[in-house]
Structure formats: structure tokens, C-alpha cells
Design a protein around this nucleic acid. Sequence first.
DNA 1: CTGAAAGCGCTAACAC
DNA 2: GTGTTAGCGCTTTCAG
Lengths: 344, 344
Amino acid sequence: MATLSDVARKAGVTAATVSNVLRNRGKVGAETRERVLAAVRELKYRPNLTARALAEGKPSTIALIVSSIANPFYPEFALAVERAVRKLGYFLLVCNTNDDPAQEKAYLDAVGGSLANGVLVMNADFVQIDELVHLRERGVPVVLCMWEKPDQPPPLPSVAVDFHRAGILAAEHLIALGHRRIGAVVGSERTGNHIWRYRGFVEALARAGIEHRDEDVIFGHDTIDEGRSAAHTLLARVPDLSAIFVSNDLPALGVLQAAAEMGLAVPQQLSVIGITDIQLAHQVRPALTTVAVPSEEAAQQAVEMIMQLMKDEGAPAPLLRETAQPRLVVRASTGRLLTSSTRS
Amino acid sequence: MATLSDVARKAGVTAATVSNVLRNRGKVGAETRERVLAAVRELKYRPNLTARALAEGKPSTIALIVSSIANPFYPEFALAVERAVRKLGYFLLVCNTNDDPAQEKAYLDAVGGSLANGVLVMNADFVQIDELVHLRERGVPVVLCMWEKPDQPPPLPSVAVDFHRAGILAAEHLIALGHRRIGAVVGSERTGNHIWRYRGFVEALARAGIEHRDEDVIFGHDTIDEGRSAAHTLLARVPDLSAIFVSNDLPALGVLQAAAEMGLAVPQQLSVIGITDIQLAHQVRPALTTVAVPSEEAAQQAVEMIMQLMKDEGAPAPLLRETAQPRLVVRASTGRLLTSSTRS
DNA sequence: CTGAAAGCGCTAACAC
DNA sequence: GTGTTAGCGCTTTCAG
């Protein structure tokens, strides 16, 4: 594995010069440059990124902490991050903590030990914020990719995604279709991370003068299977629901399945709407109506932010960036309320 | 960010000693060790992995080249690899080539430039084998994670997964249920990477004396959407099919959807079986019967192989390791042939 | 324009 | 047991 000085020797110059031509740094004579390039080609030289990182004082990797990949949204988002990172010449170190604090700590330590230049955190709710703050205090750039609590300032630089608005959009869509008895399946617990999605939904209902009772909602179901069972219990509890708002696509898919199992036609008898717009949403039948979250953009913003933090060592005060607004994507799982087809 | 010598100074020893206590290397006095540890704690010292990598001549990362994450199997497998890698104290650098040769080349160069210690390749078919072979020749350990061509020796150390057998198992299951007119949707082209899955299927049919005509099969459909449309054309072409073998879970899910769209009851009127057993397979309704591939084990074996290659620089001849056999997972999408319910 | 020299933070012999 | 001495492969002043 040829090194810089191998190339230098072959080209009859010194390592510094080779380095210069390779990085287009200082001025190098055209003729010398050619000789060096030839040597590089001949020796199949590839710069040793580790050595470069050490010399430059910073590695060329950015870490992305993901709590789990059970929800396909994470891999999808990770891809978006990777694209953004690569465009800037960095590599992405994907750190899957598997929701295990020990594993997360291990990763964070490693990153703190300058395995990576900075860390992007996917889901701030499933992470030990304190550890992150420590990291940050030790000079490591940290940014949270999806801050969804508009009422609290983030403890670290973040990109904010307006999930509250997503909830509103979903509700308004259902209302516009004529629905008045609308149930809700919320992915997180009552005080969990989906709270603002739910609040948006509730507010929109209230604004339209639509009643929303406590029995109309069920919390803590964030997988397909959980969504399915949630829908079963919800529909058993209040059978005259004509639509269900789900705070996440994955459980929304489960709700769709429950409807099928109960023989409810979607959307003729039951409308279902989710939030996020994961790939599966349009691959499923009936295709899921959902509120798409601008994840590509969020990823890009997060990467821009971390680059900025990496540049300005003088770590400016925690800032917050807004992404583009979420956007309704109407597909086949929602439809007009048919007054004729009231159930049971 | 404290360094080794900072710690050394504070503890009144030399860097080498600190290094020794940290790595439990040479013998260190109990009392000295304590002093060092105290200094480490106080300074919140974290070893710089980049420097260590440079000094040791090898980084602590393994790269995983993934061609795409469109198929959820890849992230799932990546997770398994990550677990295996971490257990051995390494970090996983996930390199998503996005099916783009340029991107792949860039990653391979970086890895060759010792960003990583070795490279694991997920899907050898969507990758430029030559580049990999070059890498290998330059001394970088490379292993292919899922070699599925029993007739060809792999060009690089690989772990073999018996997809041929998976095809056989799928066919035998269908046959045992009484099916005689069985269609096939194959993910790859006729000569592509799923060929052995299909061959296994065909052989099992032949062995059972069941006719399989060219019109019963359709190639090149490997996504949900493609699986769906493939099923439509296949069933239009030969309407008396009572079961469909699909070489991959994702398109099998599409076939399930097509059945629903056509009003075919699964499994009463149509049985569907896939291969792989991705998470979605059991989350969908009806749950998909499939042949599970031992991916956890394959990941582990691949990691073991690469560790071995990393140790024995003397690169032994390309070896091949077999994983556990695939295994039938019966769920709700397959059932007995009901002679009564013949279609159109 | 090119070379010489120092050093990034750590490890690994080998002395003491 | 612990310190000394060299590097790992590259970047980066600073001379020439």
C-alpha cells in the first residue's frame, strides 16, 4: 500500500510537494505536477484518510445516531443524511443504538474520541440528552435532526420539523371530507414525542367545532401490530367513528389492516390518515393518505448546521432551524363521508 | 480535549504507562494504575481513535457496502452485521452506493485509503467485482455476505446462503398443499441473481412430476409495485394458477395486493409464498408464508471471516462458508388447494 | 516553486 | 514496573 513518500521518491520530489499537488494547495510547477500524478497513478496511491485525519486534527466522518431501525423511516432518513454528507466529502458512520443506553454511550464515547467529526442525532427522545450535552461541551458538534416540541427550546442546535402543523393538516383534511366522529391513534404515550401531532389534530377539531372525547383516542401504539390492535379496541369502544387520525404511518398501516379484518371498506366506511409518508405508504393497498414530512430537507439542514458548527469552533448559541412545512398527500385511504353507509 | 500526555503529566508518569494501564498491556503497579485512572477520570480523557488507528496501522472500522436500501432486507441485515461487528469492538461504516457505480468507487477508494479495516459486501451482484478484487489485491480484506451461486466459485471469500434450497422448500410446501398449477414471479432477470431460487423451485416441481411452462413465470420484478403488476399479468395470462412462488418477499407482498385487487381470497383461492422473511412479512395481512434465510448467522459468519482475513495477512485462498439452511415459515398466505373453489 | 522539519495522539519495542 | 525512543502517513509552516 503505497504511501506519500513512496510517490514522492518515485517522482523525485518530496512528500510535501506531492501533498500539494494532491490537495491543489500551494503552487506547483506544471511539469512537476505531471510527474507526481504519473507516480500516483503508477503506484495506485490512495491517501490514507486516517493519517490525514490525524494531521488535520479532524476525521472525515460524521456520525448519525439512530435509536432503532424498526421503523423504516429511519433508514430512509439515514439515506438522505448520507447523500447530504457525501456531497460535502464526508463519510457517514451509522450508529445504531438499538435503544440500548449502554450501546449509545459506547458510540458517543468513541465519537468523542474523535472517531467522527460531529454527531447527528435522529430521534432526540430516545437518547440520553445529557450525554450529548457533555459531548457538546467537550467541543464536539452535535445537532438534533428532528425537534418536534415547539414549546421547548432544544438543548442543542436542532432542526425543527413542524409536526404540530402536520396534525392540523391531517385533521383539516378529514374535516373537509365531512367527517365528524374522528378517532385518534397516537404513537407515543400521552406525554410522549407525538404529543404535538396530536395537539394539532385536537386544535383543528376544536376550531371546527367538532367534539373530541377522551374515549376517541388511544396512546402508545407505534408499530404496525400495535396500530392494528389499537384500531380494534378503539372501534369496539366507539363504533361510529368514520375516520381515524394516526400520528405515524406505521401504525396507520396497522389500522388499515384492522379495517380489512373487520370488513370495513376503506375509505367508504372508514378513512385513515397517517403522518410522515414513508415509502410503504404508497406501496400498500389501499395506498395511505398521509402528511409528508420534509425529511430530505431536514436531513440537508441538519448537515449544513453541523458543518457550520464544525467550522465555527466558537460554538454560537444553540440555534434552531425550521424546515419546509409538511404537506398533505392524498391517496386512497381517505374519502368523503357517505351518510348512507353508517355502521352498526 | 485531553490527550494521553495530559493524563500522563497529571499522573506524574509517562504516556507509555498511561497507554499500558488503559489497554491492560504490560504490567503496571497497582498504585500507579490508580493514579492514572484518577487522572483519566478527572480530565475526562477519551482515547483518540484516529491516532490509535494510525499507530496500530489499522482503523477500528469495518465498511459495509450496500447497494440500496429500497428493500428493507438490507437495513435489517445491516443491523445484524452491526451487532456482530460491535461485539468485536469495531465500528460499522455503512456505505450506501445507491446503485451508483461512481459512488461505489468513491467509497471503495476511501476504504482502500484505510478509512476502514476491511469491507463487507452485501449484494455481490450489484457491485463492481473488479474493483473489489483490486482492493483485495492491495491487501484489504473483502468478503461477500451472501453468495447465492452454487455453480460458481466466488471471486472473493464469501459466505454462501443456500437460496437454491430455499426455492426447493417453497415449492415443496406448495406441492404438499396440493397445488399443481403454480406460477412464479422472479425478482431478477432470467439470468440474474435469483436464478438459483427459481431453479430450486423448478427442480422440485419436476421431481414431483408437475408441469411448469414458460408462460407460468415472469422475470425481473423485485419491488412491491412490480410484484403487483407481475401478478396481474401472470394471472391474466394463466388464470388457473392456484399458487404463486415469488423469489423475494417484497414482490410477494405485491402479489398479495394484486390478489386483493382481483378479489381473490388468499389462501382459499390463491396461495402465495416468498423468500427471505423480512419483518414486513409477518406484519402484513394476510401474513406472508415465506422461506426464512439465516441472515443473522450469515452476518455473523461474514464478520468472523473478515476478522480472520484481517489477522492472517497471508491471505489464504478464497474460502467459502456455508450458513445454516433456510427454513420454511408457514403463515397465512398459503393453504390447501380447495378443489371446489376453482376460478374462472 | 520546492524542500526541510515539526508534529497530530498514540503504540510498541526496548532499555533502565 | 516505568521511561525512552521511534515511528504510523500525512499536513503545514517556514526556509531556500
